[in-house]
Nucleic acid binder design. Structure first.
Lengths: 251, 251
DNA sequence: AGATCATTGTGTAAATTGGACATATTGAAT
DNA sequence: ATTCAATATGTCCAATTTACACAATGATCT
């Protein structure tokens, strides 16, 4: 029979789950591209996803919210749990220890860990990237240009993107990726960035307007070269309705 | 800073992850209804989902395969990880300890656990239900009649069904729920059972045949009252293709 | 001031897909 | 031979999706 560790209900406030971590793939949208927020380890050129540990006294969703808050300064963000990564060989702990010695205590990372993946969609412009205790830089990377990542974080990123695309295919998404007011081409480029393919602007506009999730404002965006585009904003009530319908919403 | 437990690479073969479990929702299909496999605790009238612990030296997918194998005798089954349950108040450990004392060592269950959920689709007729060390009965329940479940297993079951329906809506499913040869009405009733609604037989047949995932055999099912229905079998190659397309496949 | 130019804004027609719908056939049971 | 309950099957209409091109705008450049 498998051995079970016996328990103790009174935890130190910050005591965390052993061998269980949480990784966040934070997506933003800027200049027509999908971006992802990455951390650079202290005095190294190694990058990884923001992550952390789950406290004994905290829901895992709250742990994800806390970690996101710490890295981006944002509250009330769109967050989805998408997969739990638990292969025995998720990463080579020897290699990791070589790369990160002097930053972390390698013994603390020798145990195999299982990691719960969350992805978030945030308003790029509202984020204040903030490194954690192990890292000295936190910044956005274009999805097309992400550097090599530590651990199995590249796999996690791929799976997050796949899950996001799937979600996009049956639900409206983007409430959290765009600013309060946005133009139709901006919204379209967001969809293009997520889906990784071109969309016909006429068909896109027709579909989005018909769904009712956005409202055209009596206002155009000034100061851009070329023709001034109209501004739109999300109709929060309708958006919520469509979400709850589970209404298939495929672009 | 959060405390980390330090590690040890050499594990006893059966040593498991602390505070992390795995629960399986095993779906079968029989007599026109979707069934789920449940376990009854020794000398109690309490039921729960089959589950278990994850070994230190095993992939979580392999742990799910092992647990399924132990409960059903089956290999090579359709298996999907669908969600990880990690609320602090997933269940009341005092209540649990009252209900299950003398069966389990309550100390072993006092720790809050996080549970990874998998669902499986299996061929009902091929299963040999087999209780585990804590239970004395393992049997199929009709989805409409499941008894009250321990822990948060009812929530897990609901979420599994929801995930299955979602998957059914963009992928062909059922390779593992039907026998080698099956009739069109059987397949249709399987879809109806999963989706929980009636389907038009003409439209269903049109759609399934057009997708190419099944092949009509030169054979009818004999010995049934009324008109003998034709037999079909899955075209494994085409089925795989459609799966890999991610081809939307909505009934 | 006028020309340039990249970007926005917009409609229609064809093709495809989805949904509704009813009746003849079969073969076991009586 | 009749009954009966389940199987097998095709058409039409509606809705949705896709393909496709050009005029309008307004900042920028000369």
């Amino acid at each position: 029979m498998a051995k079970l560790r016996t328990g103790n209900l009174d935890f130190d406030n910050e005591e965390v789950f052993p061998q269980l971590s949480l990784d966040c793939v934070i997506f933003g949208f800027h200049a027509g591209s999908l971006k992802v927020l990455l951390l650079k380890w202290k005095s190294r050129e190694y990058w990884s996803l923001p992550g952390g540990w789950i406290r004994q006294m905290e829901d895992i969703d709250d742990a994800a919210i806390r970690i996101l808050q710490e890295r981006t300064g944002l509250d009330h963000i769109f967050l989805r749990q998408f997969y739990t990564f638990g292969k025995t060989e998720r990463y080579d702990s020897q290699e990791l220890s070589d790369k990160l010695s002097y930053i972390i205590d390698p013994r603390a990372w020798f145990d195999r860990t299982i990691s719960i993946g969350y992805y978030a969609l945030v308003d790029y412009a509202a984020v204040f990237p903030n490194p954690d205790e192990f890292t000295d830089e936190c910044r956005w990377w274009d999805l097309e240009e992400v550097p090599e990542l530590l651990f199995d974080h590249y796999d996690i990123l791929k799976k997050a993107l796949h899950s996001l695309r799937l979600e996009l295919s049956y639900q409206p998404v983007g409430y959290n990726l765009l600013p309060e007011k946005f133009t139709m081409p901006e919204m379209m480029r967001m969809y293009e960035a997520i889906l990784g393919r071109k969309i016909d602007p006429r068909n896109f506009q027709k579909k989005i307007l018909h769904s009712g999730i956005v409202t055209k404002l009596d206002e155009v965006k000034r100061g851009v070269a070329h023709k001034s585009p109209y501004l739109y904003s999300f109709d929060r009530k309708k958006y919520q309705e469509v979400l709850e319908d589970g209404g298939l919403f495929i672009i």
